[in-house]
Write a protein that binds this DNA or RNA. Sequence first.
DNA 1: AAACTGACTAATA
DNA 2: CTATTAGCCAGTT
Length: 103
Amino acid sequence: MGQQQYTLFYNAVHAIPRGQVATYGQVAQYCGLPGHARMVGYALSILQEPHDVPWHRVINARGEISPGGRPGRIATQKALLMAEGVVPDGNGRINLRQYQWRG
DNA sequence: AAACTGACTAATA
DNA sequence: CTATTAGCCAGTT
């Protein structure tokens, strides 16, 4: 467990098509590790540029953008998502039924 | 070693 | 809708 696992997560995130989103738990399950949602969050939290991981396509199960350490992260993620056509509803939440990736 | 901490979730109340 | 509980596990104190 460790670095290798993160590579697996990053790989899974790469599989999320543009214009769609996936939840942390979904990514974990896709990797064959159900229940490891927190590890997905951790893996993304330690990402450092340069990287080519579309981290913004990963949101929580409520359809919200999870708060991260640095303020401004949420706005960035929201902007990236909207740039590829994923638009939040009136309450700032993303409709999973519409945008969630079906692997 | 033990306690604490998280970009999490599902189930209950 | 909010709150609480319990499960999760690699890092950090």
